[in-house]
Design a protein around this nucleic acid. Sequence first.
DNA 1: CTTTGAATTGAGAATGCTTGTCATTCCGTA
DNA 2: TACGGAATGACAAGCATTCTCAATTCAAAG
Lengths: 143, 143
Amino acid sequence: MESQDLRSAGLKVTGPRLKMLELLENTHGRHLTAEAIYRQLIEAGEEIGLATVYRVLTQFEAAGLVTRHHFEGGQAVFELERGPHHDHIVCIRCGRVEEFYDEAIEKRQRAIAEKLGFKLHDHTLTLYGECSRPGCQRQNSES
Amino acid sequence: MESQDLRSAGLKVTGPRLKMLELLENTHGRHLTAEAIYRQLIEAGEEIGLATVYRVLTQFEAAGLVTRHHFEGGQAVFELERGPHHDHIVCIRCGRVEEFYDEAIEKRQRAIAEKLGFKLHDHTLTLYGECSRPGCQRQNSES
DNA sequence: CTTTGAATTGAGAATGCTTGTCATTCCGTA
DNA sequence: TACGGAATGACAAGCATTCTCAATTCAAAG
């Protein structure tokens, strides 16, 4: 149950937090903006404020429950942290996001950081391209 | 002379554009925010508006003269496009930016995009860590 | 070296995303 | 079940960036 996830993250169990976790879990593989989460909850009849969505996402991020990505375009997208690290490839036409993991790249990154005298904390790698899905068109807003 | 760079980029030669190009060229290896460029020009006695700085940077970017990076932290940073492609490693304490290039990583990226059915256009790779410079402290604003 | 139209500029307003404020409400312990 | 602190929602505020528009500047032509 999600309440347990919240508790073990040191967060009080509240309605908004549960609803948001639920939504994130039922949106497998998706990368949602705060706005999109807000809209979906409102449309589902929930009573929630956009400020709360942002606040809770920030808390989730601090607790390691979600990851925040800054793909190109103003809005940040949030992704439920599930399983191991991965990077992303984003379609510049339809916005679709795929995930990938490449050990060779990871290894080179560690080597580069060490060579340059950095203690590596984190990294972001995002590829941008055009995907080959049949329905790939300039679709943007996800309701 | 910089005027030639502007002309060949299809841009009219104007005072603000020349000053900005000059500043970018004399700030070798640096990654500047729009705000920083604005401040430095003002301090140098130039008469320029922040809106112009943003506008011109966008034009420079479109012309391929500069690259815009979205490192963490709200502001974008701009870098004069000089020489071949490279990625970045940023110190999370002092903000210092180093550049690197790794053919193995580039090659893997192309392979990954192809495998996932994407026509690769671009990518961003940024490593974050702590550098080992003696003077590395929470220094931020660069005047 | 002037004229002249279009491009560029500066100032401030406006926008879009995100965070802060604060009174009200909710959670969970006693 | 009552209580205190944390969480919430509505709205204001903040920040980076873009837009608007009248005034200025550029450069091509006369």
